[in-house]
């Protein structure tokens, strides 16, 4: 059999990627945001239980076995260290790596645009995300809307994601004709993820940019918490034509709270019998030294390019998907 040597993306898609990258760099140059690079391979890794790092080994010094280096799942820790060091607004365009992810919208390595705006709140950052996406899509008049996580679940499914229990979520999922909902073994956030991806997400961002914001505290990740009627995580995701394109935070800048969250993540991973990479103590030290209030966001560029080209599968925008890499 002749190996697949040809690219899976059409020449027009390869050109569109170059056009997108040039437009992004032009946007941030005009906005006075500095382009930076941070390590792809680090001695520490993110602890998010939803993500798994790819690991390689570095051979140097006396240990013949070498030491593990984790390929980043996102450049967030070192970029926040730069923010804490006073570098100002920064952005990065880089490849990131996630083990165990492959599908129509997933590829184990993908291109991420991540940027940080010291002194901005996440509401203002959402406006800038919309501006960036409009430029790349070439649709300056594309409307944007904001929907809260709680409001979406209440209006569409009639449930309050802050208070609903697993049994009710299971029943609701079954009633919504999610196959096998009755037999799945999920925790509360797992049920909410199931309902969001199977019943709600497909309608988000139809003909507009939909920012889903203010997540349950259990899904805060690295976002700051705020006390409203209920406690909410100041986190947002951007959806366009039913596809998740971006995730952003009002960054948690409290070192002690951050350490507690990382520790909790590690306990969750340990409980699941998964690897527990070392905590990035340099990142915690940067927060302890004083990181300015900052908002930050990561945009999946392959999916954004899919939206530009109106294609269905991520392989249509990749030169060589992993099966041909």
């Amino acid at each position: 059999m002749i190996p697949h040597w040809r690219p899976s993306a059409a020449p027009a898609a390869l050109r569109a990627r170059a056009v997108m990258l040039a437009a992004l760099r032009d946007f941030f140059a005009r906005a006075g945001v500095l382009e930076v690079e941070t390590p792809i391979a680090s001695r520490c890794a993110g602890s998010d239980p939803a993500l798994e790092s790819l690991v390689t080994r570095w051979h140097w010094g006396s240990d013949a076995a070498g030491q593990p280096l984790y390929l980043h799942t996102s450049p967030e820790f070192p970029m926040k260290r730069l923010v804490a060091a006073g570098v100002g607004p920064i952005y990065q365009i880089c490849k990131v790596f996630r083990d165990g992810e492959r599908g129509r919208l997933h590829h184990p390595e993908f291109s991420l645009l991540e940027w940080y705006r010291p002194g901005w709140d996440y509401q203002r950052l959402m406006d800038e995300v919309a501006a960036v996406v409009r430029v790349v899509l070439g649709r300056p008049d594309l409307p944007a809307e904001r929907v809260t996580y709680r409001g979406l679940f209440r209006e569409q499914l009639g449930i309050d994601p802050w208070t609903v229990g697993c049994a009710a979520l299971r029943t609701r999922a079954g009633a919504l004709a999610i196959p096998d909902a009755e037999s799945l073994d999920l925790d509360r956030d797992g049920w909410l993820d199931l309902l969001l991806t199977q019943c709600l997400q497909g309608q988000l961002g139809r003909g507009c940019l939909t920012f889903l914001c203010d997540y349950p505290p259990s899904q805060a990740a690295l976002a700051r918490l705020r006390q409203d009627a209920v406690e909410v995580a100041e986190r947002f995701e951007l959806y366009f034509e039913g596809v998740e394109l971006a995730n952003g935070f009002q960054e948690l800048t409290d070192a002690a709270a951050q350490r507690a969250r990382l520790q909790l993540d590690l306990e969750t991973r340990c409980h699941q019998g998964r690897a527990t990479p070392p905590i990035d103590t340099a990142f915690l030290a940067a927060l302890a030294a004083g990181m300015p209030e900052t908002s930050g966001v990561a945009v999946g560029l392959d999916r954004l390019l899919m939206a530009v080209l109106k294609v269905r599968h991520i392989d249509e925008v990749l030169a060589f998907p992993v099966e041909r890499a």
């Binding site: 129509r104 997933h106 797992g190 993820d193």
Partner: peptide, 14 residues
């Protein structure tokens, strides 16, 4: 087979 996963959440196979 469709792989479904929110960026920060539980993955499923549909």
């Amino acid at each position: 087979n469709e792989f479904v996963k929110p960026g920060k959440g539980q993955a499923f196979s549909r």
